[in-house]
Structures are given as C-alpha cells and as structure tokens.
Design a protein around this nucleic acid. Structure first.
Lengths: 356, 356
DNA sequence: ACCCATCGTTGGATCGATTCAAGAATTTGC
DNA sequence: GCAAATTCTTGAATCGATCCAACGATGGGT
C-alpha cells in the first residue's frame, strides 16, 4: 500500500497521538508507567499509522548492547553447516546462547576484502573466531574491534590472545601410542593444511614450517610418541590435505602406491579419517584387519561410521560453552585455556597384521 | 590497560587530531577525499588513542541497512545445526548470502517470551522464517517488523504471506503411489506434529484438525492416492510424532504390537524415516524385504543410510537460494511459490512381501 | 486553606556515526 | 593582479530511539 513512503517513526506517532516522544517511547519500553488511557491511545495511533514498533537500530545506539555474539571464520559460511566439527561446536555454542537469550551472527566472506569489512561492521558484542586454518589476519581484524573475543583452536604459540584449545601434542601422542602398542610399525600421516592452497606429499621439515601451529603440534605429538617406540619417523610418509575427500583420497592413493604400504593411518581430523574409511572400503582393505585408522576431534559421526572410528575426542561441548561464557561475562579475558583430550577406542583400530 | 574508561569515539580522535569530526569521518569512510597529510595524522592519532574504528552501531543508524538477513525459528538455536533438513537448507542459504556478502543472524528462543523480544530487536534487513512446526505466531511477529520476509514451508492456506514451499499433497501422493504399486496394502503413517507438545496414536479426524497445514496436506496426499488403490484409509494407523527418535520408535512399537502389522511405512520426514530404519534393524525386520519405508525431504543422509532411503526430495538448495533472493532484492514479495518435488527411489522400498 | 507526596508527562541531552551545503584555502587561467 | 576553478574542511542536521531532571497535576493529611 504505502510504498515509497518512508517508515513511520516513533516521533510521528507521538505527534499524531498528541503526546511527547518521551511518553511515546515509554508506551513501548515501560508501559507500566504510562496512564492506561494514554497508553491505549498511543498504541491505537501507532497501529493505525502502521508503526512497526521501536526500531532496534535506534534503540541499539542508546543501549549499547547488541545481545548477539559473532562467530567468524575464513571459510565460506556454509562451513558452519557442512563441517562435522564446526557443526558440533556450533550446536554447543548455540545451546549456551539460547540459555542466555543471546543471538548468533555468522560472519564470513569468500574473499578477504569482504572479510575485513564484514568483521568491522558486524553488529555483535563479541567474537568467537574459528581458527581452524589459523589465519592470523582474522584474529587481527577481530581484535581491532576491541570487543571481547575468543579464538578456538588457535596456534598455541601466540600467547597474547584469548583462546580455548586442546592439548594437541598430548592428544596426538595418545593416538600414536595406541597404535604403536597394537604393534603397528608402518605409519602414515594425513595432515590438515600446512600452507595456503594446495595439497600433496610433504616432508617432516616442511610440516615443521607449517603456518598453522595446530597442524604442527599434532605432528610433533605423533612423532614424539612414535620415536619412543623406536620408529624411524623420518621414514613415515606425510601427506598434506585440505581436509576434504579429494585430497584425502589422493593421499591414500599415494601411500598405497608405495612398496611399503602402511598398516596404520594417523588422521588429524575425524572428517579425514571418515573419508579414509570410505576409501578403504572401496579398495577392499579391511579395517582394522589390514589397516588401522585413528582420527582426531570426536565428532558424533565417528560413533556410527563403518567401522566406528577410534579417535582423540576434544571436549567440544565444553569448549563451546566456555567460549560463550567468556564473551558474555568477561570484558577481555586474555588467558588461554588448554582443554584435555580423550582417546576413544572404537573398532577402526586393532592389532597390526602379521607381516605377510 | 585502559579499562573502565569508556571507548574512544570518533569525535575524540577528531578533537585530538585537531580536525572536525566531519573530516575525521571521511578519513575512515572516504579516505580518498582527504589530503594525505591530514589523513595520516588522523590515522596516527586514532591508532595512538586506541580507537577501534568507526563503530557500526553509529554507522548503522545513518546507513539504514544492516547487511544481514535473519533466520528465525521456534526451535532452539541448535536446531539449525542438528536437524538434517535445516542443515541443508541453511547451507544453501549461506551460500547465497556469501555470494552477496550478506551475513546471517540466527534468531530463536527457548521460551516464547524471549522469541518475541528476539524478533523485535533483531538487527536484520529481513527474515527467513522456518515454519517447520508452523506456529503462526512466529510469522505474525516477523511480519509486524514490516521488513521483507519469506516463510519456508508455511501452511499453504495462509495465502497472504510470502512463502516458499513444496507441493505437499502431490509429493505425498508420489510416495503413496510408489508403495501401492509395489503391491503394499497394509500401511502406517508417521506424522509430523499436529498439535502442541505430545505424541501418540491419532485418528484421521484428529489429523485433519492439525494446526499445521504441512502435516495435514501430506496426510491428505497419502490418503487420496491410497484411496485410488481401493485401500480403506480409515483403517490405516496414524501416529503423531515430534520428529525425534523417541516418538518415532514409540510409534513403531505401537504399529507392530497390533495383529495386522504394516508392510509399508510412510514417514513425513527423512529424519523420522531414518530413525525408523534404525528401529527395523534393531528388531531384525528386513527393509525392504519385510517392510518398506519412504521418507520426505531428500536430505543427503538418506543416500548413505542402511539401506539408502527412498524419499520425496524437495529442491532444498533452490528454495534456499530463492528465499535469500526474495529478501535481498524485493521490498515485499507477497507471492507464494510452490516448488515441485521428486520421488527418489532407493533401496528402502520394494515389493510387498507375499502374505505369510 | 495550605503543604507535601505521588504519579505522569515533558522536552532536552545523548548514543556514534554520516552527509551535505557552505565557506576557506589553494591553485590555475588570462 | 584579479577572477575563476579546484580542493579541503567545517559545522550543523540527521538517523531513531532511550533516559532523566524538572515540572504540572492530582489527592491526602492536618
């Protein structure tokens, strides 16, 4: 109907109803202090004029609090709904938000120029930053907003930013020890990204220079433990993936093309491990009969996969809860929290096959 | 460091740098029109004072556009990350948002009082409303904001609101016909919620008075088609669920406790159908040998379940894309769009067993 | 009849930025 | 050397609400 005409403002309603804007405001925000007769008149006028209620844009400026927390990532937005780890984390974050009535704003952008703008103009009270691929630019941007923020899974060396992470070295150690104790001696490692972009086989030295400390620490954890079992880690093949099916399968093609095929696969995420299980099934390799696979994260899909996945479980729910708490309560925790991890033994790992 | 002191404002920076706030504003928003020398001085001052950049709260009021679309639901926020249908829909919505650089705000609340407030104060340019449980109060609230909005899957009778939905009657008909043509004659129906709260066996008459037209239409679609095969639909047991495992399993317990056990299950969502498959496996009932199951939605999990699920697929990705487009482009589409559905035949349906 | 509470209402100040017409400073043209 | 063109800068107005100190009515008590 009344298109092209700009929306009705509270002041318009006030004028039409013959009261001051102060009183009109009270009708909506503190109805109990306005005399009933006036209240009804103003409400009726508002209704008649098609007033949409106090505009949050205006309210916001005065109130100062948005009542929403931002969750930011470098990945496309759909990462939050596609990636198993992100999904579980988001579910726990959203439960915590529900409990306090806070909303969630998803912030991201395909290209990094958009990213900057999106972070700078996000209407939120604080940020939870997903640093799965550890780009420090994202952290930098979020920090410049000078709002409370927490990084999840951040490079463990940047001690100055608030972060909630897990003990990657210890966790990786648990996985490696578990397999070594089963008698495995021929290992192969599927890593998370080390550098921008590509994937392919890399050397230990290359992995050590990884941009992402999470990747680096997990590798160190694996190798430290394997060394303890007198395994020559310099011979363990490492394949860098981008945490998707294509690169994982390429990695396995690579491992199993060599003459000394591995009997144990260490995967740095459950997502990779689950893709690996698919690959094994397609290639008629028995798990854990021929090859054992251990993941990392502890996503629920691992419990129902074929076979169920042995993995290093992060306390994802607890991490999400703490992140939200940190944003909502604090005004700038700068501490780092390292959460413990748990080895969850299921059916994807077993004794090493007797050498044939 | 400088805690307890309120944040630096643009005006503070301007004063400190000895320029007007107008110029200071230009330094950040239109750097190219400010002389370089001045620009650098202001930037340096801002940096030194710990200015966090123009506060979006202020900018917003003037600009008018938030650049984010709100997605609202009655369910808890974690619904977006837990429910398979919602996940796929959100993934496609987020892709569309990514493409235009818009953000996503998730709006919800446990109790309905919070819901009202959250909708009223959400900082968004428009709403996409998930009406899975078709509560019209949610639609009402969203509409009162007088922002562009689109309902997904809304009751098909409320012609006045913009909505994107599927042809539930035709879709349900496809599922029913598929099973009837396989020779099935003993059917049972698992419905989505019909009323607030509970679950349990209901009559056709009760289902007809369902609060939710989606539920009603699917049932009508089933029954219309079954009648065409001379099946006495008044004898077909109907069990109302709340779309979770517990209620689905209770429904199956109920169906299979009777003397005339069904050979074909019509489930109004894939989620229910997948829970049904689990139940069958646990009770050693062969699918599709003893019982056939057909779902509704077409979520990806159906393709990899055991056995893969025959279902009525909605064009979820396309629906998400259109919803976003409607919000971002239009200033109030009030048309309804009915999308076509597709029967996807997989291995959970087969010929009716010969009567034993 | 007067004073004091109480209750409602008013209008101005404020939140933090952007925008724009007008003016000042500088450069260019003739 | 003066007018015109150009480039920056300024300060006021605006966006849409909330908050608060002050003020004007009422009603009750003595």
């Amino acid at each position: 109907m009344d298109r092209s005409t700009r929306p009705v403002r509270l002041a318009d309603v006030a004028k039409a109803a013959g009261v001051s804007h102060g009183t009109a405001s009270n009708v909506f925000s503190h109805p109990e202090i306005v005399r009933e007769e006036v209240r009804e008149r103003v409400k009726a006028t508002a209704e008649a004029m098609g007033y949409a209620g106090p505009d949050p844009k205006g309210r916001l400026l005065r109130a100062g609090k948005v009542n929403a927390i931002g969750v930011a990532t470098n990945e496309p937005l759909s990462y939050f709904f596609d990636d198993p780890f992100a999904r579980v984390m988001m579910a726990s974050i959203s439960q915590a938000c529900d409990a306090t009535g806070a909303g969630i704003s998803l912030v991201s952008a395909a290209n990094s120029e958009h990213l900057a703008w999106n972070i700078q103009s996000a209407l939120v009270d604080g940020f939870i930053v997903f640093c799965i691929e550890g780009d420090s630019r994202l952290v930098e941007l979020a920090r410049e907003r000078k709002l409370p923020f927490v990084a999840l899974d951040l490079d463990s060396e940047n001690q100055s930013v608030a972060a909630i992470g897990v003990d990657n070295i210890a966790g990786a150690g648990l996985a490696a020890r578990h397999l070594a104790e089963f008698g495995h001696r021929r290992f192969a490692v599927l890593t998370l990204p080390c550098a921008e972009g590509g994937f392919g086989p890399i050397t230990q030295a290359q992995a050590e220079t990884s941009l992402y400390a999470g990747t680096r620490d997990r590798l160190r954890g694996y190798f430290a433990e394997l060394s303890r079992f007198d395994i020559d880690v310099s011979k363990v093949p490492i394949y860098e993936t981008v945490n998707d099916q294509e690169s994982v399968w390429a990695g396995l093609d690579h491992f199993f093309a060599s003459s000394e095929t591995p009997t144990a696969i260490l995967a740095m995420s459950d997502k990779m491990a689950l893709h690996a299980l698919d690959w094994m099934r397609q290639h008629d390799i028995a798990v854990p009969g021929d090859v054992s696979v251990v993941g990392f994260d502890g996503v629920p899909e691992g419990a129902t996969s074929k076979p169920p996945l042995t993995t290093v479980a992060q306390p994802i729910a607890e991490m999400g809860r703490r992140a939200v708490k940190a944003i909502l309560e604090n005004e700038g925790t700068s501490s780092r929290q390292l959460m413990p991890v748990d080895l969850v033994v299921r059916a994807s790992s077993g004794p090493a096959p007797t050498r044939s």
